[in-house]
Design a binder for these strands. Structure first.
Length: 327
DNA sequence: TCTCCTCGAGATCT
DNA sequence: CTCGAGGAGA
């Protein structure tokens, strides 16, 4: 029986759990595919690197032949488009002699056994493998560790967490990347470096785990405001921000809210997290993204309007007027 | 005012 | 997954 919830989201029964661990024995996995969507695209290469006692001790790697399609104009057989060949270096002629997924699946599942699977954005690889194995009524149940999840926690200051970026961060050689076997090796090096970072940044694995268990990672707005300080010692008292208390609502177009607050502080103003009798200005950002907001006005805006009617010294500013205040 | 919850957006994989 | 919004309720 199909219900409406299942139709919107793919549920993979018996799929393993995402772990935060640094085991000594595991398998690194990586696949190459014809695209990003497991329901339309196909696997063209699978690699796995078996690690025992933190040392690579075996490799599984094979190309996989996907469905062929015929080019109408040239009447020739294709497996991958030029974008994928460009990206991975895997060509149609290489795939023409490759085995099918069904032919390699048992060797693959024997190789990985019940090892923990480690990969970069490993859900991508797991989902493709899971769906293909399911066609033979095999459940891929292995638990897994995602290096992208670890790197976002351990290196939040990085501009992005692509495998390539992490590799260059640690000077890991990436020649021949975007082939599955090479990407396994890169991921292995990345995982080792992330492991060292845990101790460097948290002292113990337990401390790191504790930081992950805290569900709410970002500090509250009021907590953020408490920690805002300025180097300035002298202020232009004629600036409209001086001595005034600002509150922000919605998402600002031009800068993150934190930066806007810093500008206010630097001009001798103050910031608050909610509308009070002391609030002088409410700056309106964009609320379009927020599905729960009622009749276009945030709770802060309604309260500010109420206070203004009561005669408090409060004005509601658009984002652009706020920027005019700054100079 | 504070904690917890929900939701959208963006990131990442090929 | 993670972040950053607002909302509900204590």
């Amino acid at each position: 029986m199909l219900n409406i919830f299942e139709s919107t989201k793919t549920i993979r029964e018996h799929k393993g759990k995402s772990l935060i661990e640094f085991p000594h024995d595991f398998c690194i996995i990586d696949i190459e595919t014809t695209g990003l969507d497991p329901s339309f695209d196909e696997i063209i290469e699978i690699s796995a690197l078996k690690i025992r006692d933190n040392i690579p001790c075996g490799t599984f790697s094979t190309l996989v032949q996907p469905c062929e399609y015929i080019d109408d104009e040239t009447d020739s057989i294709f497996y991958v488009d030029s974008y994928i060949t460009e990206l991975t270096g895997i060509t149609n002629s290489m795939l023409s002699t490759a085995p099918l997924f069904k032919d390699v699946q048992s060797t693959f599942i024997d190789f990985i056994g019940d090892d923990i699977l480690v990969g970069h954005n490993v859900n991508f690889d797991i989902n493709f493998l899971y769906d293909n194995l399911l066609k033979s009524n095999i459940f891929l149940k292995n638990d897994f560790i995602d290096t992208i999840r670890l790197s976002r926690r351990l290196l939040p200051e990085l501009p992005n967490h692509k495998l390539q970026s992490l590799a260059s961060f640690w000077n890991i050689d990436t020649t021949g990347s975007h082939r599955a076997e090479k990407d396994c090796l890169i991921t292995y090096e990345v995982f080792k470096n992330l492991n060292s970072l845990v101790i460097e940044k948290f002292g113990t694995y337990e401390a790191f785990l504790e930081s992950i268990k805290r569900k709410y990672t970002s500090i509250s707005e009021s907590e953020l405001i408490k920690h805002l300080t300025t180097d300035k010692v002298e202020f232009d008292e004629s600036n409209p921000c001086f001595g005034k208390e600002f509150v922000f609502t919605g998402k600002l177009e031009r800068m993150p809210r934190k930066e806007a607050m810093q500008l206010v502080i630097d001009l001798g103003g103050k910031c608050g997290s909610s509308i009070t009798k002391n609030t002088n200005y409410l700056v309106l950002g964009n609320n379009d993204y927020c599905g729960t907001i009622k009749n276009g006005k945030s709770r802060k805006q309604k309260k500010a309007e109420e206070y203004k009617l009561k005669g408090y010294d409060i004005e509601i500013l658009s984002e652009n007027v706020f920027y005019d205040f700054l100079d």
